[in-house]
Simulated assay, not measured.
Amino acid sequence: MKTTNTILIIDLEATCWENNRIPAGQKVDIIEIGICELNITTQAISKKQSIYVIPERSKINKFCTELTGITPQMIEEKGIYFEEACEKISDEYDSTSLTWAGFGNFDKEQIMEQCDELGIENPFSENYINVMYQFKKYNGLFKMMGLKRALNFMNMDFEGNHHSGADDAYNAAKILREILQ
């Protein structure tokens, strides 16, 4: 059992289409769950990983691969089904007992929607922190900004590749760590 000084930070990559035009018969599917832990006592960010997910309601197209770097071949080699990914998160992170966070509300809403649609138990607790909103509030800003701009605003470097779930989760964790200090 984890102590309450741990917050899980996630970032999803999902199937996407140019100009957000979702083809008939397809739905947005999670294809990567980037996740890491932030220990608010020690300030350490750890257990960073990417969990690749097999899309069950859509296909990965060229636009999506160019944006995320995730290819159908990668998913074929490393992907697991969404239900297995949820079980893995529950088992490895004790996620149902922890507060979790993401940069914006997309990640939370997509997890909830996909769990509902596929009849899978949500692996996360009710306690969610919208890091984008907290960043805006912390800095007294009137409008939201993306992850890279937020890091830049706080004089932090983006580490890794943008639109890599694990790297985006790690960078969101850096912002949250700063806000919580």
Rank of each mutant, 00 (worst) to 15 (best):
F103W: 12
C16I: 05
D116W: 03
Q181E: 11
Y93D: 10
C115G: 10
N61G: 05
N127M: 07
S90M: 10
T3H: 07
E113M: 14
K62R: 11
F63Y: 15
L147Q: 08
I33R: 00
F106H: 11
I179R: 00
D94K: 03
M74D: 14
R57A: 12
T96Q: 13
F106I: 08
V131Y: 01
T42V: 09
Q134C: 07
S46R: 09
L67P: 05
N152R: 05
I54P: 04
L151F: 09
A85H: 05
G79V: 07
A166D: 14
G102I: 09
E77G: 00
D29T: 08
F124E: 05
L141D: 11
E121G: 02
K2I: 13
Q26P: 06
I54E: 05
G69I: 12
I179Q: 01
I30F: 03
V28A: 00
K27S: 15
N122C: 15
G34K: 02
N61D: 15
L141C: 06
I80S: 02
L67G: 02
E13Y: 07
N122G: 02
T96K: 14
Y81R: 10
V131I: 15
K108A: 12
M112A: 15
K143M: 14
T99P: 01
I60G: 02
L176R: 02
K48W: 07
N61H: 04
I35H: 04
I30A: 06
C36A: 08
P72E: 09
L176I: 07
K137M: 11
W17S: 05
Y138D: 09
D167M: 05
T4Q: 13
F135Y: 12
L147P: 09
I75E: 05
Y170G: 08
N130S: 06
E109I: 11
N19G: 03
K59V: 15
K137T: 15
M144K: 14
C36R: 04
E84F: 03
L8W: 07
Y128K: 00
T4G: 11
A173I: 13
K2R: 15
S95Q: 04
P23W: 11
I33D: 04
L67N: 01
L147N: 07
I120L: 07
G146T: 10
K59S: 15
M132D: 02
I10L: 13
I175T: 06
T42R: 00
T3K: 08
A173V: 13
L147H: 08
N5G: 03
Y128E: 05
M154Q: 12
F82D: 08
L67W: 05
Q26H: 09
I89G: 06
L180C: 04
Q49P: 03
I129P: 04
T99R: 00
K27R: 13
A44W: 00
A101K: 01
G104D: 12
I51E: 10
N171D: 10
Y133P: 00
I179Y: 02
F153V: 03
E121P: 01
Y138H: 13
L38E: 07
K2M: 14
Q110H: 14
E87N: 13
H162M: 08
F124C: 03
D168K: 01
E121Q: 13
I120Y: 08
K148M: 12
D116S: 14
N171K: 03
F158R: 00
